[in-house]
Amino acid sequence: MSYILQSIFNGLLAGCIYALFAMGLTMVYRVLNFVNFAHGELIMWGAYLLYLFMGDPFHFPLYVALIPALGFTILLGLGMDWIVFKPLRRTNRLTLLIAALGISFFLRNGAQLFWGAELRTYGFEIKRGWRLFHISMTANQMAIILATLGCIIIVYLLLYRSIIGKAMRAVSDNLELARVTGINAKKTIRFTWIISSALACVGGILLALDTNLQPGMGMINLVKAFAAILLGGVGNVWGALWGGIFIGLAENLSVLFISTGYKDSIAFGMMVLLLLLRPRVLYGSQE
């Protein structure tokens, strides 16, 4: 029994991480109408920036280092848009997609240049987890769940309880119409990048706290985030949240019955099935 409970808990954890990645990714898709392949690198840079500010020459404690890490990741997201995506805004989606792939390679190799390809950790001491109802959990894992909840609440408040969130939803519905009605589209797009980058940074840091830092860490998990987005309906923020958690759970529970060698195929199998059965998910669901 504890075996199943622990699997569910692990599934939730993985799901939280996927959901944080998927929410940011889908938000950019909704407003700008393209899949940002470089989102994985925002995740990775977020984690590495924290590593930078905690190590030489800064030596900030974790909670202080979080602030510049978050700030610089947001700047990176905004810079990406300003330098590459903005001049390409009027071109077709394929061009944007390829540009995003290019940035992804550039940023990944850039990180490798600075920090090397080897695995790193933040260097915190490893602690035995607590046991609660036969489930073992660590402080980092509690932080993952709490931070995810926090992010969800903040995203909800921003999207549905603020003027800028309303503008964002309007721009995503119809950019031209939103412009005509006097919505500042530029400001809205900037705002979208800020939230998306911040979510990527938080997710990346949590992932690295729980595991390790590695230049490829964003890319690997981004694929799962794609699956989550498809599952929840492209462009739907809450769909991405549920999609992420669902995939995390499905992956972790499925291996109780089948060989662990097929763990990754679960997410992709679901993705393929969904595309076959409900191809309309690609067009996004309107609320």
Binding site: L13, M217, N221, N252
Partner: peptide, 16 residues
Amino acid sequence: IPYDEKKTDYRTELIR
């Protein structure tokens, strides 16, 4: 229990 390389989460495999 086979497992994939380069993953960040092996808890499921460990439980099994």
